Simulated scan of single mutants.
Amino acid sequence: MSIRLRALIIDDEELARRLSKEYLRSHADIDIVGECENGLEAIEAITAQQPDLIFLDIQMPKLNGFEVLEATGRREGVIFTTAYDQYALKAFDQHAVDYLLKPYSQQRFDDALNKARKLLGQTSTEVIDLVAHTNAMPERLTVRDRGQTHVIPIAQIDYIEAQDDYVQIHFNGKSLLKTQSLSDLEKQLNPTLFVRIHRSTIIRLQALKCLERASKDSYQAVMLNGVILPISRSGYDRIKGML
């Protein structure tokens, strides 16, 4: 007996969504649980439906496909569908199931589905990792908080602090908690714009006002918003080399 898979179609073009549904008609083991036309809708649908399989466009209004994955922490069952070939390497770096370049045929679509079936039948956590190994440096961060999705432009971030299993992102006079380690988030940030000044703190260099001596052997960072943050010895060496 074959396992039934629940699929979500995400694309801002109605014709593209219609084509995916048409191609899926010949696959009796696939149930379509919904369709979305922008990134914010996609985040809500993925969170609510928890589909086994996602057909995901990349360039969409509000949030792109990669940002949707980052916001939801999606780790498996993603088939990219896009008209742009320049994102292929990034998609496969993230271990996507497949990358369908529009316009694609029924046969090409079926091949991608067969790959997905094989991968989804495996239980190893090493099969797919869509987020942790990405080399992308996003221009925005997305944070889920109390049922809402917040989009934080990188340019508005002042500093980021580790809080147990979370990071607290301080930006534009506000702060939000995100479920992620500081080390993992650091890998996503542009090292020419951000620097880790302490084991628990990363700052954006343009949000820094000045460095001042806290004691004979230590310094602290004075931010433009008035916050004062401690700097470790290794952190001082890193930031000194960037100023």
Rank of each mutant, 00 (worst) to 15 (best):
R4P: 10
R6H: 10
A7W: 02
D11S: 02
D12A: 04
L15R: 14
L19S: 12
S20E: 14
Y23M: 14
L24Q: 09
R25A: 10
S26T: 09
H27R: 06
H27V: 13
A28Q: 13
I30Q: 02
E35V: 04
C36D: 06
L40D: 10
T47Y: 11
A48D: 14
P51W: 06
F55T: 04
D57M: 02
Q59T: 09
P61K: 04
K62H: 14
N64L: 07
N64T: 01
N64G: 02
G65P: 03
F66V: 03
E70Y: 09
E76N: 14
E76P: 12
V78T: 11
F80Q: 04
Y84E: 11
Q86T: 12
K90W: 05
K90Q: 15
F92W: 03
D93F: 06
V97K: 06
D98S: 09
D98C: 08
L101C: 05
P103T: 05
P103E: 08
Q107A: 15
R108Y: 02
F109A: 08
F109P: 02
D110P: 00
D110K: 02
L113G: 03
N114R: 13
L120H: 00
G121V: 00
T123V: 01
T125D: 15
T125N: 13
V131Y: 06
H133Q: 15
H133L: 13
H133G: 13
N135V: 05
M137L: 13
M137T: 15
T142Q: 14
V143H: 04
I152R: 06
P153K: 04
I154L: 09
I157N: 08
I160V: 09
Q168C: 15
F171D: 08
F171I: 03
K174V: 01
L177K: 07
S181W: 00
L182R: 02
S183C: 02
N190H: 11
N190P: 09
T192N: 15
T192L: 12
L193G: 10
F194R: 07
V195E: 12
R199T: 08
R199Q: 10
S200T: 08
T201L: 11
L205G: 02
Q206P: 01
C210G: 04
D217Y: 07
D217W: 09
S218Q: 13
S218W: 03
Q220D: 09
A221C: 12
M223N: 04
L224N: 14
G226C: 07
G226E: 09
V227S: 15
V227R: 13
I231P: 03
R233F: 07
D237S: 15
D237F: 10
R238M: 10
I239D: 08
L243R: 09
L243E: 12
